[in-house]
């Protein structure tokens, strides 16, 4: 037993692209998630966050590498053997509009996973269970027989969450669960997710491009750039002492609601993001990195420990360039 709930070992995912090229969506990623923790996954659009999330719960099969759940290699399992583990892993989507079937009532939407896994006997028992779940996510019971379009975005996301927790999973991938919502509603959902984590002993992979969301929820954070991990470790530590040049750019760029810092020069990233179908040799960040040297082009920096966190940069000890 590895002692981790979930572990990715050298996971790689290539997608076919135009002209016999391959999109390097996730490249040689290894990470571990402990039971009960929340790992935040941040990075910019297209860096492979959603792909990695889907690989971890076997909604996608890796091109190479393996994923272990409670020490067991689930990549190698036959579908029929994986079924008992499937129930343990759920996904909450970004878009509460697209992810709920508009023709189903709330009752049926939330009952679906309960019925799929045969968790209750009679129809009444199922409905009782649905009521209980709606209470857990603060959706009033009288909405039981309404349809998704009758709800606001926040309420729909609550229903999505009720579905995700219906089969009592232990691991949930939340893929940008609040990005489509209004600011005042985002916090309601984030508080709910945090409460559910404690009351139901959940473990989360929390994907977001919003660094403040991750700051609130994640015990540890993983920063990705073009399919690779740049830096991973304790959230507080990384937010106060980023080691990787890319992490620094990311944290500096977040606009803070404080007009007194207006006019303060922000370091801007140079150039354009490299293509995932044609990643740079050596360090994937080097074409944009102010610190890059020949060494960075020649070979790829491995993740290594610096203090308590891991970073993949040859010059991670040296502070901002």
């Amino acid at each position: 037993m590895s002692g981790y709930l979930l572990e990715a070992r050298n996971v790689t995912k290539l997608f076919p692209a135009a002209g016999k090229k391959k999109v390097h969506a996730v490249s040689d990623v290894s990470l571990q998630i402990r039971e009960g923790e929340t790992l935040g996954l941040v990075g910019e659009s297209g860096c492979g966050k959603s792909t990695l999330g889907r690989l971890l719960i076997r909604l996608l099969a890796p091109t190479s590498g393996e994923v272990r759940f409670r020490g067991e290699n689930i990549t190698a399992l036959k579908d029929s053997d994986f079924r008992r583990i499937r129930k343990e892993m759920q996904l909450v989507f970004q878009d509460p509009y697209a992810s709920l079937d508009p023709r189903m009532t709330v009752r049926d939407l939330v009952a679906e996973p309960i019925e799929t896994w045969r968790l209750c006997g009679s129809r009444e028992e199922v409905t009782d269970r649905v009521r209980e779940l709606l209470r857990a996510v603060n959706v009033p019971e009288e909405f039981l027989y309404r349809y998704p379009h009758q709800f606001s975005g926040g309420q729909r996301q609550r229903i999505g969450i009720a579905r995700a927790i219906a089969a009592d999973p232990s691991f949930i991938v939340c893929d940008e669960p609040v990005s489509a919502l209004d600011v005042s509603v985002q916090n309601q959902i984030l508080n709910l997710l945090r409460d559910l984590k404690t009351s139901r002993k959940l473990t989360y992979l929390f994907i977001s491009h919003d660094l403040s969301v991750v700051r609130y929820l994640a015990d540890r954070v993983c920063i990705m750039f073009l399919g690779k991990i740049c830096e991973i470790g304790d959230t507080e530590e990384i937010y106060t002492r980023p080691r990787h040049p890319y992490t620094r750019f990311l944290l500096d760029a977040v606009p803070v609601p404080d007009p007194s810092v207006r006019g303060k020069e922000i370091r801007l990233l140079k150039g354009e993001p490299p293509s995932p179908a044609d990643p740079p040799t050596g360090c994937r960040f080097r074409t944009r990195c102010p610190r890059a040297t020949e060494k960075c082009a020649a070979s790829e920096p491995e993740l290594r420990y610096i203090g308590g966190v891991q970073a993949a940069c040859y010059y991670a000890e040296e502070g901002p360039a």
């Binding site: 926040g154 005042s184 916090n187 309601q188 508080n191 660094l211 403040s212 700051r215 609130y216």
Partner: peptide, 24 residues
């Protein structure tokens, strides 16, 4: 004031985020 209280900090974590109850 509710909007300002709902702003999430990058610098420090907290137990519970402030919200504006209800919806638009």
């Amino acid at each position: 004031r509710g909007l300002f209280r709902s702003v999430r900090s990058l610098r420090e974590g907290c137990e519970t985020l402030e919200t504006i109850p209800g919806v638009v």
